[in-house]
Amino acid sequence: LAMTTYQSLSGRNGPFQCQAFVTVSQSFDVKVLMRDILLQITQPVNQPSSPSTGAGKGPMEGLLKGMETWNVVQLARILRQQLDNKRYLIVLDDIWSMNAWEGIRFSLPDSNNGSRIVVTTRIRAVAHTCCFHEYDRAYEIKPLTDCESRDLFFKRIFGSSICPEHLEDISAKILGKCGGTPLSIVSIAGLLASKPVQSKDLWEKIYSSLGSEIETNPSLDRLKKILELSYNDLPYHLKTCFLYLSIYPEDHNIRRKTILRRWIAERFVTGKRGLSVFEVAESYFDEFINRSIIQPVTTSFTGKVKTFRVHDVMLEIIVSKSIEDNFITLVGEQN
């Protein structure tokens, strides 16, 4: 939602002179955050860089030369100078602690000219800490309504909001397990859409595999259960490729071409009759997209995914699975 809002305000005729979208996450480095914001705000507003992927050479290249060696005080000073008296939009996505907010907020000046700072967090106390002006507001995202949940679920599977009559009852039961969480709904729908036949028996089996206790679990535990089911349903050859994504840090933007080449280099992919090894790797990647277990970040003008992310809850699951299967060894924090 934050990304959609950010992108809708981008462009030559947008209301802001400069803008940036950065992901904070649990393991944050305030210097990295400041550098990322600086790189993005120095791009022309009608050609914004991809959030959290860095930027190309901009008009302020000379000023930012040597930025990698700057300390926090230097970065904060330059950042304030670049934002001062400008109308800017900064999105700080997925803040987990008050320390993260306190570490960055003094670098964002208030020139009383309509600038906006949007913070997303799953922790209510952090949201209220970020509201230090009387006109700041904390918005708690509500679960989807039953009607919205059905629309999202059926459109993902059938391409329309109409459900076959024989699947209506079981779909209502499955949606009850999802609790109005969009990621849960899309994940289950992606799993069902991957099946060649949409039978009531198959849907009943998937419903039963979620367990009767899931509806009484907290929303995060419920989401984990559903995402774990999506992982367990993968064929063996796809599981190996998917587990490989556990080597990347949380909220990292992964390039599609890079991961395809890595799968091939690790010999997770072999050629098939009539298809090159790279084409097979692409078909594996497309299957992950179709199942909605990875999240596209940027796409080409033809609609092909260029970069993507693994949701942090799904990443937690596959890191655990990778360690359990001795697929990877985790050294220190995953950052």
Rank of each mutant, 00 (worst) to 15 (best):
I328D: 04
R105S: 08
A138G: 06
E102T: 10
S246W: 01
M98P: 00
V197K: 13
Y135I: 15
D221L: 13
I293A: 04
F301T: 15
P59Y: 11
F154Q: 12
T69A: 09
M60F: 11
F278L: 15
S230L: 09
G56E: 03
Y244E: 13
Y284M: 05
R12D: 13
H237Y: 12
R12W: 12
V72D: 14
N217Y: 15
E68M: 05
R124K: 14
A193H: 03
D312I: 04
I78Y: 10
S107E: 03
Y135W: 14
T298A: 09
S27F: 09
I289K: 03
T23S: 12
K257F: 04
K65N: 15
N253G: 06
T23V: 11
E102V: 06
I206R: 04
Y244A: 14
L39R: 01
C147S: 15
E266N: 14
T129P: 00
L9Q: 13
Q334C: 13
R80S: 06
D233C: 12
K31L: 09
K177H: 15
Q17S: 04
H252L: 01
A76Y: 04
S171R: 04
G332H: 10
V45I: 11
K177E: 10
Y284G: 03
K224D: 07
Q295D: 13
K200Y: 10
S208H: 13
E266L: 13
G62P: 07
F106L: 14
A189E: 08
S276Q: 07
A100H: 03
D312P: 00
L227P: 02
W96S: 02
R256A: 02
L192C: 08
R222M: 10
A265K: 12
K177I: 08
R87Y: 01
D146Y: 05
E134Q: 15
V45G: 04
Q198G: 06
G303H: 03
I162F: 05
S292Q: 07
I318E: 04
T23F: 05
R267M: 07
V118T: 10
S50I: 15
V119G: 09
I174M: 15
Q82M: 13
T23C: 09
E134Y: 12
R12C: 11
T299S: 10
C131P: 01
T23G: 08
S194F: 05
V22K: 00
V269Y: 03
D312N: 09
R261C: 09
A193D: 01
D136Y: 08
I123G: 03
G54T: 01
P109M: 06
Y6L: 02
I95A: 12
S283R: 02
R105C: 07
S194W: 01
R116P: 00
E287V: 07
I104Q: 00
D84H: 07
R80N: 05
D93G: 02
S52K: 00
R35Y: 10
I317L: 10
P235T: 05
R35V: 11
F16E: 02
F268C: 06
L39I: 01
S212K: 11
N13V: 08
R137A: 14
E250R: 05
I78D: 06
I206N: 04
V119Q: 06
D151I: 11
T270Y: 08
I247D: 02
E102I: 08
E204M: 14
A125L: 09
F153W: 10
D201I: 07
P296S: 03
G56D: 02
G179I: 05
I37L: 00
F158W: 14
D29T: 03
G332K: 12
L92F: 06
I294C: 00
L1A: 14
S194D: 07
M3T: 05
L79I: 08
N46D: 15
